[in-house]
């Protein structure tokens, strides 16, 4: 059996002395796309950030490809939430994408034309080739999201961790992101997405992790996205779950 790209065991995270993740264990399968699903405040983004060491974990262990993250940094790419940065920053789309290459360029060396070309290729992969020179504040929300995605693609990683890439984007961006996910998968890469939209989980992803401070269920979408599991994840918000039940039962069999 191959080593999972990301393996998390009994992870605990607390924020301002409030427990956010509780004994979380996740195993991500290689070559598949996985959605992390759960209600607001369930700790979805926290899980990604803790895995990447961006916020300190109280306890637990995390391994990327069977080792610590620092041994395989270049194989892991992170796409933060769009809101996490100031889009008024004086850079253009190409500059942002080139940031994905900074590690490869190395300390103190400048970005050269070969890197700019690589950045342009990554932009073309998300359908943004025409926008390379545009100031990032003049891009729409969906285009900004695609720039972030291109930055991760430029890294040419094997595992992509994306924080809400589908949040409030337009249809064109949604299509572009889906195409990228497909392409990564075909090349043997692995994708983990924090996802908020229950209805599209089954269409977009292979696996799902249901999370509400602790893991409710994980595995292939068909097995995981059951009404019972959803009820456990979303608790009292039954109306929502009932409504989804009908949608899910129609959407899941439709997929093979």
């Amino acid at each position: 059996m191959t080593t999972p790209p990301l393996q998390i065991n009994s992870l605990n995270v607390s924020y301002h002395s409030k427990l956010v993740l509780w004994d979380v264990g996740v195993s991500i399968q290689p070559g598949r796309t996985t959605a992390i699903v759960g209600p607001n405040g369930a700790g979805k983004s926290t899980l990604l950030k803790a895995a990447l060491g961006l916020i300190p974990a109280s306890s637990g262990d995390i391994s990327f490809y069977g080792g610590p993250l620092r041994k395989c940094r270049s194989r892991v790419a992170y796409v933060p939430q769009r809101e996490s940065v100031d889009w008024d920053f004086p850079v253009n789309a190409r500059d942002v994408v080139a940031m994905g290459l900074y590690r490869r360029i190395g300390w103190c060396l400048p970005v050269r034309s070969i890197h700019r070309r690589m950045a342009d290729e990554a932009l073309a992969d998300v359908g943004m080739a025409d926008f390379a020179c545009r100031q990032i504040s003049q891009l729409s929300g969906g285009q900004q999201q695609r720039v972030f995605l291109a930055r991760a693609l430029a890294q040419k990683a094997d595992l992509y961790l994306m924080d809400e890439p589908f949040a409030s984007v337009d249809a064109a961006t949604e299509q572009a992101i889906l195409a990228v996910l497909e392409r990564i998968k075909n090349a043997g890469g692995t994708v983990v997405c924090v996802h908020h939209d229950l209805e599209t989980v089954a269409q977009y992803f292979d696996d799902a992790v249901l999370l509400n401070m602790r893991i409710v269920a994980q595995g292939p979408v068909i097995d995981v996205m059951t009404p019972e599991n959803l009820r456990k994840t979303y608790g009292a918000r039954l109306a929502l779950v009932d409504e989804l039940e009908t949608n899910l039962s129609s959407s899941i069999p439709a997929r093979k």
Binding site: S10, N12, W22, S59
Partner: peptide, 12 residues
């Protein structure tokens, strides 16, 4: 006075 990692593990 902040609860440290150790105490959290005990809870779990």
């Amino acid at each position: 006075s902040k609860p440290r990692g150790a105490s959290v593990t005990q809870v779990d």
